Simulated assay, not measured.
Amino acid sequence: MIDVDLGDQPAVLAAGRGLQARSPVVRFFSPTELGLVAAARLNEDFGLGGNSLRTVTLLKDKSAMRNHLADLGLSPVRFRVVHSARELTAFLTELGGPGIVKPLDFGGSADVHRVDGPHRAAEIWSRVEAAGRERMLVEEFLTGYEVSVEGFSTDGLHTVVAITDKLLGTGFVEVGHSVPASVDEHVRAAIAELTARLLDAVGLVEGPSHTEIMITADGLRIIESHNRAGGDNIPELVRLACGVDLVRAAVAVPLGLEPWEKELPAPLGGAAIRFLSAEPGVVTDIALPTEGLEGVTLGVKARPGMVIPPVTWSADRVCGDVIAVGRDAVEAVARAEAAVARIRIRTSPVA
């Protein structure tokens, strides 16, 4: 095992090249966002196949993907990269409506801000600078119903394995997901078609993908996409509801260890996750239900003495989660939320 900081791109590349020199590697993989570009670069350096560096970079850089989609006329969204409060003000003035400011290359809903108009640009930019950022992507604020698309590609052919509902909490931090999404067959078919067009446009040829789409009054709009399985235990929900193990397939299929069955198995039912929360402070007591947990798995991580931070991005959800299955997503959600309502995590202010 080689211990290396995935956030240090040169160190990851050096470690990968050193490993290849000692013992030939068949393929480099990364299950996490931080290692995707490095894995693609190493695969390209050694001619190992997989998704190209260009493809992975397009998906990693939100502004690059927006520019690429704009050039193709696919899923039009007004956007701009800004470097100052003045530039943010100018774009919002042109936009004539609310915008959303986000980092170009980060996930987990970190440093994402809604801006209601030019009058709030200076306030929001002060937060951007406080986070140590010098440039941000600002887009028109899309309103509607957001879903994610869990896909898998082989030889450039794309399969939509599942469409996932998401539930937002404070700000843009997700507090839950459920599979399958509550969309009708017409919308489901349109989502699958748009996802395939997107993945073709960026040149994705293999492996899992996680694409976020907003269903708006003006049609479907792509928010972003990634050449990895979704976070937040979404692959586990897909496995429970659909019988497809995307994490296993991500490695086994490209290596030829298992075939990819393009005909998906019959759905098993529904699955849902709800993340636990507590008042910020030090955990003093935890009370968990012991009965009435049919189809429910408790993943409580909070412990007495643990410090619970305010939730500003996904990594702040440190209390744990509840995963439930049911005959359909409605029953799974009901079971998960009923369990959450019976969990008590008490805190006291940090001294």
Rank of each mutant, 00 (worst) to 15 (best):
T154L: 13
F275T: 00
G96K: 13
L59M: 15
G281L: 06
A130Q: 09
S30H: 06
S109Q: 10
D3F: 10
I222T: 07
P259N: 08
E134A: 14
V25L: 08
L142Y: 14
L168V: 15
R344S: 09
G256F: 09
R17M: 09
D155Q: 09
G207A: 10
S153K: 00
R327Q: 09
A85S: 11
D45A: 10
G132K: 11
G99M: 06
V187G: 00
P98T: 11
L88T: 00
T143K: 09
D3P: 11
E331V: 08
E123Y: 09
A287I: 14
P310I: 04
G270P: 06
D328G: 08
L198T: 04
H158R: 01
G144L: 05
A189F: 04
I222K: 02
V82C: 06
G35D: 02
T216P: 11
V282Q: 14
V128P: 01
V26Q: 15
A287F: 14
E294W: 07
A201R: 01
A162K: 10
G270I: 06
V282D: 10
L34W: 05
R335P: 00
V330Y: 09
H226Y: 08
V4D: 00
V318T: 13
G144C: 10
L69T: 01
V160N: 00
R41T: 14
V128S: 03
V311Y: 04
V25M: 07
T170A: 14
V81P: 01
F275S: 02
H226F: 09
F29K: 01
D116C: 08
A278C: 02
V251H: 09
V4I: 12
V81A: 11
N43G: 06
S52N: 09
F28G: 04
L298C: 13
V318H: 04
D165I: 10
D328W: 08
D321A: 15
P76E: 03
I213C: 05
P24C: 09
A15E: 03
T32C: 09
T159H: 04
R27C: 06
V247G: 10
P118I: 08
L19Q: 07
G243D: 06
F106L: 15
T89L: 00
K301L: 15
H68G: 03
T170R: 15
K62H: 01
D105F: 04
